[in-house]
Design a binder for these strands. Structure first.
Length: 259
DNA sequence: GCCCAGGGTGTTT
DNA sequence: AAACACCATGGG
C-alpha cells in the first residue's frame, strides 16, 4: 500500500498517543481501544470498522495526491516526500484538547502532557486509559491540573471542558455546519485561535478543507507558495497542508537563508 | 543563561 | 492592523 505509511501518518504531528515500539510497530489508544499496529498486521487491523474509519481507509488518497500534484509542481514535490500520510479520524474533543495544549509548545512535551492528563483524569477500563471526557475536567481547578504541568494552558483546557460539557459548543454539530461558522464557534473558547480551531476541524472533525497555519506553514507558504491563499488548494487543502508541513519539517534547510 | 517550541491574549503603536 | 510582551515548562 503505497498510499498508507504508518510512520508518516502517526508521526506527522497530528496525533500524540502513538508510541513507536522497538520492533517498528506502533502502540496507541483511540476511542477507548488499544492497538498495536505494524505493516504486518495492518490488513487485519483494517477489517475492524472502527480502525478502518480511524485510519480513513475508505478515502482514495492516491487519487487526491494525483489531483493535488497535477495542479502544482511544488506541491507535487512535497507530496512525493511523504505519499503515505493520511488524515486520521480522531475524537473531536481529544483533538481540541491536544491542540490547545500544543500552543507555544513542542511535540515531545505535548505527548507527555497528554499522557499525564489521561493517567490522572482518564477512566481505565480493561487496562485501557481513555482520554478524559469534558465532564471529568469541567469541575476541576487550575491547581488540580498542576500535576499535568501544562502551564498557562490549564485555564484554556478548563474553559473548553465547560463550554463543551454545557453544550454551548456542540462538537458533533460542527461536522456539518459551514466550516467558517464551525471555526468561529470553536474560537469562542478561551485559548482557541485560528490555528487550534483549524487543527480541531481537520484532525478531529475531518473537515479536509481546513488549513492550519503554524510557524512552519507560514515559513513554507512564504518561501514555496508566495502570494498563494490556502483556499486555492481546494476542498482537500488540509491534506495539502499536511504534505507541506511534513516536507518543511523534514527539510528545514529550505528556510535557512533568512536575513 | 539563552532560545525555541504545530499560539493566543491583552496592550500599545 | 500590526507589533509587542507575556504566558509555564522543558529540551537543546
Amino acid at each position: 500500500m503505497e498510499c498508507f505509511d504508518l510512520a508518516q501518518t502517526l508521526e506527522c504531528g497530528q496525533c500524540f498517543r502513538w508510541d513507536l515500539q522497538p520492533d517498528g510497530s506502533y502502540t496507541g489508544i483511540a476511542g477507548g481501544r488499544m492497538l498495536n499496529v505494524s505493516a504486518e498486521n495492518l490488513t487485519e487491523v483494517l477489517k475492524d470498522p472502527f480502525w478502518r474509519r480511524y485510519f480513513d481507509f475508505d478515502l482514495d488518497y492516491e487519487k487526491i495526491r494525483r489531483e493535488l500534484s497535477r495542479a502544482d509542481p511544488v506541491l507535487a514535490e512535497a507530496a512525493r516526500f511523504a505519499p503515505g500520510i493520511r488524515i486520521l479520524n480522531q475524537d473531536p474533543w481529544e483533538a481540541l484538547c491536544s491542540f490547545i495544549l500544543s500552543q507555544n509548545n513542542n511535540i515531545p512535551r505535548i505527548r507527555g502532557i497528554v499522557a499525564r492528563l489521561c493517567e490522572q483524569f482518564g477512566e481505565e477500563t480493561d487496562g485501557v486509559r481513555s482520554f478524559p471526557e469534558p465532564a471529568a475536567l469541567r469541575s476541576l481547578s487550575e491547581e488540580d491540573l498542576a500535576g499535568v504541568r501544562c502551564g498557562f494552558r490549564a485555564r484554556y483546557l478548563l474553559d473548553a471542558a465547560r463550554r463543551v460539557d454545557s453544550g454551548r459548543v456542540d462538537l458533533c454539530a460542527l461536522r456539518t455546519v459551514p466550516v467558517a461558522q464551525a471555526r468561529e464557534t470553536l474560537m469562542t473558547i478561551v485559548g482557541v485561535g485560528p490555528k487550534v480551531a483549524d487543527c480541531t476541524l481537520l484532525y478531529g472533525l475531518h473537515r479536509l478543507e481546513a488549513f492550519p497555519m503554524d510557524v512552519w506553514m507560514k515559513r513554507a507558504m512564504k518561501t514555496l507558495f508566495p502570494g498563494r491563499a490556502p483556499e486555492s488548494f481546494g476542498r482537500y487543502a488540509g491534506i495539502a497542508q499536511q504534505y507541506i508541513f511534513h516536507y518543511s519539517r523534514m527539510n528545514p534547510q529550505l528556510f535557512q537563508k533568512e536575513a
